[in-house]
Amino acid sequence: MIPRADIEAAVIAILAKELLLPPAEIALDARIEDLGLDSLGKVEAIFALEERFGITIPFNANEPDQPDFDFVSVPGIVAGVERLLAQAPA
């Protein structure tokens, strides 16, 4: 199992790359909207997470409440990745 800290670090690294920010500037509880990530940045970050962890993220940009994957905050994304990793076949 991948430790939560490693998932957190990967999520922050991927967001930092999209936002052109140093990873240290993204707080562990940051909200995506506050970071200023636009819609294309969001789908690129999702793609990067899928490639990094070998998962498929059920995210549809047209569902405002994002019932299948919470992309609202860093903790939400980390929890979502953890859940998908736990479901993934070994």
Partner: peptide, 8 residues
């Protein structure tokens, strides 16, 4: 699919 805008 990659743009996440298609309806299922």
């Amino acid at each position: 699919e990659g743009l996440r805008v298609l309806a299922p």
